[in-house]
């Protein structure tokens, strides 16, 4: 990082998304790693939003390993699952830290948080960023657009930048020097505007026992061609330590959970390796995976559009090719 960072050395604030038990969401270590890279020697703070009865402990050890300097725990008097409540809490932590850059994981919920911060604080927002830098005191973010076919770099022109970072865009790394994050406690009575959404039900999904789809480095994806049989895919995924994803058709058919749907309106993935089996590659699906490093496709239809973007395409029966692939990889590893 360049020297002129010292001049613009406002801290970065990272939203520490976590499960109800306090476990960090998979994107958080990536965000903290990125924040550290962006600010160089300046401090990186996190904001931990807790509900009225939320006693989950802040994992300061894990955050210290990542080099976080401080955690602002904001206890709100409303349901923190509501984006407006979360936004008010982030705004309070931003005021406490004076941060000029707020980093969020680019989930759909967090975009609502970013949008509200834009209106309430006048922030400029970039969503789905895969890189962030400070150039001459200005926050510059890079992203891929138009279904992964174009890349752009955007400068944020406002004093406060809110950047939503795509999962998996950064490889989480431990800090060279671990820290002992100080936990700064805040109590916030959220404004009337944020209190009007009532959470009637909130049901956490169970743990799939697999890597998080959005940030996984290897993803095995099934479509219509699986005819509902994901066994050859899960076996390959287990061997590769991969996440399992699906197309809209496969989730609509009820073959696999809806939260595995990859595409423009589902999960966006950019893994090192994408393996599609029985996936035709409709434009909606491509929009969610075309930024993958290497694309492998197995499909018995030689005209499937996925072959137009595949680095390695096999025209063949996935039920023959996948088991053979898994067996051969196992043999090569033995």
């Amino acid at each position: 990082m360049s020297e002129d960072l010292a001049v613009t050395a406002a801290a970065v604030l990272v939203l520490l998304d976590h499960a109800p038990d306090g476990a960090l969401r998979p994107a958080v270590p990536e965000l903290v790693t990125l924040a550290r890279d962006v600010v160089g020697a300046a401090a990186v703070a996190g904001v931990w939003v807790a509900g009225p009865d939320d006693e989950a402990p802040v994992p300061t050890d894990a955050l210290g390993v990542l080099g976080l300097d401080a955690v602002h725990r904001v206890r709100v008097d409303a349901d923190p699952h509501v984006a407006a409540v979360l936004a008010d809490a982030v705004a309070a932590a931003r005021e406490a830290t004076g941060a000029a850059l707020v980093l969020l994981a680019s989930t759909f919920e967090n975009r609502d948080v970013a949008a509200r911060l834009a209106v309430t604080l006048g922030a400029g927002v970039v969503t789905d960023a895969d890189a962030v830098q400070i150039e001459d005191g200005t926050v510059v973010a890079a992203k891929t657009v138009l279904a992964g076919t174009w890349t752009t770099r955007c400068a944020v022109r406002t004093p406060l930048a809110v950047v939503c970072v795509k999962a998996g865009a950064v490889v989480a790394q431990e800090a060279a020097r671990p820290t002992t994050p100080e936990v700064v406690e805040h109590v916030l009575a959220v404004g009337a505007g944020a209190r009007r959404v009532q959470v009637v039900e909130h049901t956490e999904h169970g743990d799939s026992g697999r890597p998080d789809l959005a940030s996984a480095q290897v993803v095995v994806v099934g479509g219509r061609g699986t005819e509902g049989d994901f066994a050859p895919l899960t076996e390959l995924a287990d061997l590769l330590g991969a996440a399992v994803g699906a197309t809209r058709v496969a989730t609509d058919e009820g073959w696999i959970d809806r939260d595995t749907q990859i595409g423009q309106t589902g999960v966006n993935v950019a893994p090192r390796l994408y393996i599609g089996a029985g996936v035709s590659g409709a434009v909606h699906h491509r929009g969610g995976m075309q930024a993958a490093g290497v694309i492998v496709a197995v499909n018995n239809d030689p005209d499937a559009p996925i072959f137009e973007i595949a680095d390695y395409g096999v025209v063949g029966d996935l039920f023959a090719v996948l088991p053979q692939l898994t067996a051969e990889l196992r043999r090569l590893r033995a």
């Binding site: 400029g124 927002v125 174009w150 955007c154 395409g313 096999v314 025209v315 023959a320 053979q324």
Partner: peptide
Amino acid sequence: ARTRVLAAAPRPPRTDRVLVQDSGDAGV
């Protein structure tokens, strides 16, 4: 506008692409 695009470019096409027809050993 609060953001300004500094640069925009199409991503380079993927090169060295392989497409094979399975004749029994594509998995290997």
